[in-house]
Simulated scan of single mutants.
Amino acid sequence: MASIIAVEKQKLKNPPLELRYLGDRALRQSTKRVAKVDQELRQLAREMLQTMYTADGIGLAAPQVAVQKQLIVIDCEPDNAANPPLILINPTIKRLSKELCVAQEGCLSIPNVYMDVTRPQVVEITYKDEYGRPQTLQATELLSRCIQHEIDHLNGVLFVDRVDNALALNQELSKHGFSAKAVKPITEETK
């Protein structure tokens, strides 16, 4: 069954939702599980996709638009109209690989800041799709990283919290007008 969340992959003059940025409390609150997958939730997913495409993103979690629900939209191929976006409702990580990889990440809530982050190479998740059906997905490469990054958002964690090089991070944040005080570093104890 094809995705029923169909939106044009284009930039809108006025995206339907307002992005929140580093320092906003909405990004640090934990989210609530979605109890019912209905038309209202699908409309929210549609608006999140429109907002994400407008901002040139490949992933967006509901807290980034100040909605405290466990809802994520992902599209690792925004330039490919034939590739449908992924809608993840109540995603849960079931397994992470022991193999790690380092890659540069950015975030729509921290524009123009790109830093290296170490994450497991493979992730396996369970979630509900936009029809409310249970699904399982194993992802590698960019999709794996994107899923982990967006699930972090559902737990009030931002990618900058996972950056090991604090000095480079602080320089990069201040260069783009963000306060390093908004970062909550994840240590071995809090992982």
Results as ranks from 00 to 15, higher is better:
31 T>N: 14
32 K>A: 13
32 K>R: 15
32 K>Y: 07
33 R>T: 03
34 V>T: 08
35 A>Q: 09
35 A>L: 09
37 V>G: 07
39 Q>A: 15
40 E>G: 09
40 E>F: 06
41 L>Y: 02
41 L>R: 03
41 L>H: 03
42 R>M: 13
42 R>I: 08
43 Q>V: 14
44 L>D: 08
45 A>P: 04
45 A>V: 05
45 A>S: 10
46 R>F: 12
47 E>L: 07
49 L>R: 02
49 L>H: 10
51 T>W: 15
51 T>P: 14
51 T>Q: 15
51 T>S: 13
52 M>P: 10
52 M>T: 09
53 Y>D: 08
53 Y>E: 10
54 T>R: 07
54 T>C: 07
55 A>T: 06
55 A>I: 06
56 D>L: 13
57 G>V: 11
57 G>K: 14
58 I>S: 06
59 G>S: 13
59 G>Q: 12
60 L>G: 06
61 A>N: 08
62 A>Y: 08
64 Q>T: 05
64 Q>C: 12
66 A>M: 08
68 Q>I: 08
69 K>N: 01
72 I>S: 05
72 I>A: 07
75 D>C: 05
75 D>E: 09
77 E>G: 01
77 E>V: 03
79 D>C: 10
80 N>C: 08
81 A>M: 07
82 A>M: 12
83 N>E: 12
83 N>K: 11
84 P>E: 14
87 I>F: 04
88 L>C: 01
88 L>Y: 04
89 I>D: 06
89 I>N: 04
90 N>F: 01
90 N>C: 07
92 T>I: 07
92 T>G: 01
92 T>F: 00
93 I>P: 06
94 K>V: 02
95 R>W: 07
96 L>I: 08
97 S>R: 06
99 E>C: 15
100 L>Q: 11
102 V>P: 00
103 A>C: 13
103 A>T: 12
104 Q>E: 06
105 E>R: 14
106 G>D: 03
106 G>K: 14
108 L>A: 13
109 S>G: 08
109 S>A: 05
112 N>C: 13
113 V>A: 10
115 M>P: 09
115 M>S: 04
116 D>P: 15
119 R>L: 14
120 P>S: 15
120 P>V: 00
121 Q>F: 13
122 V>S: 03
122 V>P: 01
123 V>F: 09
123 V>S: 09
125 I>T: 02
125 I>H: 02
127 Y>W: 01
128 K>E: 14
128 K>D: 10
129 D>Y: 02
132 G>N: 04
135 Q>N: 00
136 T>L: 00
139 A>T: 04
139 A>E: 02
143 L>R: 01
145 R>I: 12
146 C>S: 07
148 Q>H: 04
148 Q>C: 11
148 Q>R: 05
148 Q>N: 02
151 I>G: 01
151 I>V: 04
152 D>S: 07
153 H>R: 03
154 L>A: 10
154 L>H: 12
155 N>I: 05
156 G>R: 10
157 V>N: 00
158 L>V: 05
158 L>N: 04
159 F>M: 09
159 F>D: 00
159 F>K: 03
161 D>R: 06
161 D>S: 07
161 D>C: 01
162 R>A: 12
163 V>G: 00
166 A>R: 15
167 L>D: 09
167 L>R: 13
167 L>N: 09
167 L>V: 13
168 A>N: 12
169 L>I: 11
170 N>L: 10
172 E>K: 15
172 E>F: 11
